[in-house]
Simulated scan of single mutants.
Amino acid sequence: MSKEDLKLTSAEIGTLWGEYVNGTAVDIINKYMLSIIEDEKIKTLFEEAIHIFSNQKKQISMFIENEGFPVPIGFTESDLNKGAKRLFSDTFCLHYLHIMTLHGLLGHTGSLSSSVRKDLRDFYDGCDDSGKKMYHQTTELLLEKGHFQRDPYFYPEYNPEFISGQQFIDGYFGDHRPLTATEIISLSLNMKKKIMEKSLSIGFSQVTESKEVRKFLKSTEKASDKQIQSFGKILHKDNLPVPMSWESEVTTSQDPPFSDKLMLYHIGFLLQTAQAFHGTGLATAMRTDLVVNYEQSILKSLTVTKEWFNIMTKNRWLEQPPLAPDRKKIAKDK
Rank of each mutant, 00 (worst) to 15 (best):
S130L: 00
D170Y: 10
P178Q: 12
V207G: 01
R214T: 11
K118Y: 00
D128L: 06
T208C: 02
E197T: 07
Y155K: 11
V207K: 02
P256M: 13
R117S: 04
G203E: 10
N190T: 01
K215T: 10
F154R: 01
S130T: 07
S164G: 10
L141I: 08
N239R: 15
M244A: 13
S253T: 15
G203K: 08
G232T: 12
Q206F: 09
K192N: 07
L142E: 01
G174F: 07
G126D: 05
D225S: 14
S186R: 10
Y135I: 00
F216Y: 02
S188H: 11
S210D: 01
R121M: 02
T139R: 13
K198D: 02
L217C: 03
M244K: 15
L187W: 07
K198S: 01
L200A: 03
A223T: 02
S245H: 08
V116E: 06
R121N: 06
M134Y: 01
R117V: 02
D125Y: 13
I185G: 04
I185T: 02
K198G: 04
Q149L: 11
S230K: 15
K222A: 12
L179N: 00
S186H: 12
T220N: 08
S130R: 01
E249C: 15
I228Q: 04
G146I: 05
R117G: 02
G126Y: 07
E157Q: 06
I169R: 00
G171R: 06
T220I: 08
F123H: 00
G203Q: 07
R177H: 14
T208P: 05
L141Y: 03
S253A: 13
S253C: 14
T220P: 01
K237M: 09
S130E: 05
A223D: 00
L217P: 07
N190Y: 09
F162Y: 06
Y155M: 10
H147K: 12
S230L: 13
Y158K: 00
S188Y: 12
P178S: 11
Y135T: 00
I184Y: 13
T252N: 14
T251W: 14
D125A: 15
F204W: 15
